[in-house]
């Protein structure tokens, strides 16, 4: 993968994600973690190689198929990417609305999710009034609200205090136990030490895989 005429950001990257698996993606800044996630959530096209998602070669996806595939993927963007003129509730419920679900069916779920991430009292707030940690939690809630088959999170605990970070991780692990495949890109050594997961390490554009260590502690 390369951007324009620039150097290759990713090469010799080959892996498969099993349904219901959990993996951590790590590596130094600029190693290509975000690029790899962008390829997985279809924000970029690979310049060479093959990417297959849910059994479909993404280079052969039609315009009509792409949105349906994206709805199976939840993404926590590193920069949150909340819609500023919508409330917290509206931001979180957006994936369900876009899927044209009836609000009566998910309103309670969205409110429960917001309570869970500690934003029950801030449902009607606009993102501009939220702290970095609160924005992070809104972004996470939006990513998981539609119970995606694949959850991709780019530094999800980067802006939150340890207590909230732990709650967020528990949420990811709970989703994983329920069958969602989760990939978390992180620098957080605490997560790398404590989460029992495969670790993908990116360095100089190459990917190496480390198996779960026996001493890893599950949350």
């Amino acid at each position: 993968m390369r951007y324009g005429m620039g150097p290759e950001v990713l090469r010799d990257v080959s892996f498969s994600l099993e349904a219901g698996s959990l993996q951590l993606l790590t590596g130094p800044s600029g190693a290509g973690k975000t690029t790899l996630l962008r390829l997985l959530y279809l924000a970029e096209h690979q310049t060479r190689g093959l990417i297959s998602l849910f059994g479909k070669d993404i280079s052969t996806l039609s315009k009509a198929e792409t949105p349906m595939l994206r709805r199976k993927i939840g993404v926590v963007f590193q920069d949150f990417r909340l819609i500023e003129h919508l409330t917290v509730y509206e931001n979180v419920a957006l994936p369900r609305k876009i899927a044209q679900e009836d609000e009566r069916l998910y309103r309670a779920e969205v409110e429960e999710l917001l309570e869970w991430v500690g934003l029950g009292q801030r449902q009607n707030a606009k993102p501009a009034t939220l702290s970095g940690g609160e924005k992070q939690r809104v972004a996470i809630a939006r990513a998981v609200v539609a119970k995606p088959d694949l959850l991709l999170a780019d530094e999800p605990t980067g802006n939150v205090d340890p207590e909230i970070g732990e709650r967020i991780l528990r949420l990811f692990l709970e989703l994983n136990r329920l069958g969602t495949c989760v990939m978390i890109a992180t620098h957080d050594q605490n997560i790398l030490d404590r989460v029992n997961a495969r670790v993908f390490r990116l360095g100089e554009g190459r990917l190496t895989m480390l198996p779960p260590k026996p001493q890893h502690l599950a949350f």
């Binding site: 949105p67 819609i83 876009i98």
Partner: peptide
């Protein structure tokens, strides 16, 4: 553009 991209990435169809 950021709004359009997010909605696009969440799975909104172009016609939406």
């Amino acid at each position: 553009r950021d709004i359009v991209e997010v909605v696009h990435m969440i799975g909104a169809k172009d016609v939406f």
